[in-house]
Nucleic acid binder design. Structure first.
Lengths: 191, 191
DNA sequence: CTTGTTTCGGACCGATCAGTAAATAATAAT
DNA sequence: ATTATTATTTACTGATCGGTCCGAAACAAG
């Protein structure tokens, strides 16, 4: 028996993701957030508590959509581990370097930006990093060699994850499309 | 015939590096900078122009010292490419995960934090990234296979660089020492 | 010691920061 | 229609932001 919300919280959260992804935490002002979401401060504060809450929601939205869509791509692509990983990396290159998108990976940016004493956010990021590592491990699981050797699989998944993070970061400082492809070729040559 | 500087600009620049390395650009206030350098605003503004100038000087100091010391380590270590790279990565692990240093790589952090429209800083970072890639390429150059094949060397150096960046970033979200070692083992297994 | 030049420290600037309080508008139940 | 409850808007808070101005202190040359 009360007035209903004038907007969809899901949509608002995605708008938050877009805003923080583009500028990071500190460089984003409440003014930017109001403009990006189209909502007034009060509505945002009521829903998310404070600016950090908005940031956490944005990160969660990234994990729920971007990371999950990577997992889906790996699951839906037909073929062996290498083929699935190639599809994952190719789509990353296509969507970033080729599209001229210099925002980088939101998760990587957030990890690099996190303060040394912000253990709460660190924990959140660790969980999402594990989630992403699992995507690589899942792809590897389609080869019997990796399916049979958990230690090898874990190690290589971490290797791939690190390469992925490096790729996404280096793009921000001007890595070209050709360099990105060469990097990925070499990264996938061993799997 | 004038009053001399009451401090060493070199030392001040290193203090700037420490301050920005610990907190990043946006999260660092002029108050933090005054406290970290022990200098008054006026002296800093006169020397570096503005806050961005201080940041650039800090980045340059990182390239001149940290990146250069990596290059020195590669040059001074005796042995083949693999041995030299192992020394480089081992020292990175020892100085970060093992030492409980969660600041990450200043250069990586800066790249992740850089704004999409800040082309000036992007250019500066690109130069430093190339410098770091050259360190890996130099290590590879101690194997005839890489010395003879420039394309392979370039590709693999980029691969190693990306892996290095990924390692340094993942440590910030809680990668353990054991995981870091496994990652590096796998990364160096192919060279 | 005087003079010329530069550094240094603190007061100060308007702008912007994250966050809040109160008033207004809208809806659902009675 | 009245009332209870909630959403939204407007105005405002003290604090802090990056940056500047100016007087005082310090040093070198004469």
């Amino acid at each position: 028996m009360a007035r209903p919300l004038g907007f969809d919280p899901k949509v608002a959260t995605e708008a938050l993701k877009a805003v923080f992804w583009a500028r990071g935490y500190d460089a984003t002002s409440m003014q930017d957030i109001e403009a990006g979401t189209g909502l007034a401060k009060q509505s945002l504060y009521r829903l998310f508590g404070d600016k950090r809450g908005m940031y956490r929601a944005a990160l969660q939205s990234y994990a729920d959509h971007e990371v999950a869509s990577g997992a889906a791509l790996v699951a839906e692509t037909q073929g062996d581990a290498r083929t699935r990983l190639a599809a994952l990396f190719d789509s990353a290159i296509e969507d970033t370097v080729m599209a001229g998108d210099l925002r980088g990976c939101f998760l990587c940016n957030a990890t690099a930006e996190v303060a040394v004493d912000d253990t709460a956010t660190q924990g959140l990021l660790r969980g999402m990093a594990d989630q992403l590592t699992q995507v690589f491990a899942a792809a590897l699981g389609h080869d019997v060699i990796y399916a049979a050797d958990a230690a090898l699989s874990a190690r290589r998944a971490l290797h791939l994850h690190a390469g992925y993070v490096g790729l996404r970061v280096l793009v921000k400082s001007g890595l070209t499309g050709a360099e990105a492809r060469a990097l990925v070729d070499d990264l996938l040559a061993t799997v």
